[in-house]
Amino acid sequence: CGAAGLAELRRYLARLREAGLAPRRLHLLDAGGSALLLHPGLARQRLAAALRTHPPPFVDVSARRRCPALCGPVETETIRGHLAALLAHLEAAEATATDSVSSSEVVPTGWNLCTVVGVLLGYPAAYAFAMEEGTENCLALTPLRVFAVQASCPRIRDGLVVQIYSFSIPESLCTELKEVLDAWCDELKEAFRAQSDFVDLRISSEVVSLPAVAL
């Protein structure tokens, strides 16, 4: 988004905080022209969790593959190197932050932002693909289990149900990733109990096959 765009976003977020609509500290990360709005503590927590999770929660969906599979050791170490670099960057930025809305810039050379953003969003498993192949993938017509997280938000309107987020995992890998999925579910429920804005947490899943999947 460039320096000018980042500065404008910071001013906008500062006004939201003044209005009491964004009580937590926020960090704007410029990653190769993409602006990511992060809660610093939560972002660091999710990066650290992805670095220690076993099996590594990265799914290779490169177009050259016949079907999705967990990333191999070489690909996994590359991804972990990128996540570790981002974690170190955020720790350094947090150590020097003085405002309630801070910002920094990182040059994501070789990073797959699809994977990085998946980790930052808290997905239990993130998709990865060979960057030299572009954004094509092998998920077309592949059975995917789509998880959706919904909750009611009475602060806005009684009976209002909102979808907080959703993600997919290849159905063929759900058994292999069961421990990771169970941990995600438990952590989500724990985080839900620690807040008061949303009630009636609902976690659903269904299997779909689509003619094309954009990442």
Rank of each mutant, 00 (worst) to 15 (best):
A7L: 12
R10F: 01
Y12T: 15
L13G: 06
A14R: 14
R15E: 14
R15I: 02
R17W: 01
E18G: 15
A19V: 02
G20N: 12
L26G: 09
D30E: 13
G32A: 09
G32V: 01
G33S: 09
A35R: 05
L38T: 11
L42I: 13
A43P: 09
A43F: 03
A43M: 03
R44L: 10
A50N: 05
H54T: 15
P56E: 11
F58V: 03
R66L: 10
C67E: 15
C67V: 12
C71H: 03
G72P: 09
T76Y: 03
I79Q: 06
I79R: 05
G81C: 08
H82S: 14
L83A: 09
L87N: 07
A88L: 08
A88W: 07
A88P: 01
H89G: 01
E91D: 11
E91L: 02
A92C: 05
A95N: 11
A95L: 06
A95W: 02
T96H: 12
T96Q: 14
S100C: 09
V101T: 04
V101R: 01
V101H: 04
V107R: 11
P108R: 03
T109P: 02
G110R: 10
N112Q: 10
N112K: 02
C114E: 14
C114A: 15
T115S: 08
T115K: 00
T115A: 11
V116I: 13
V117G: 04
G118V: 05
L120S: 06
G122R: 02
A126R: 00
E133I: 10
N137W: 00
R145A: 06
V146Q: 15
Q150E: 14
Q150R: 15
S152C: 13
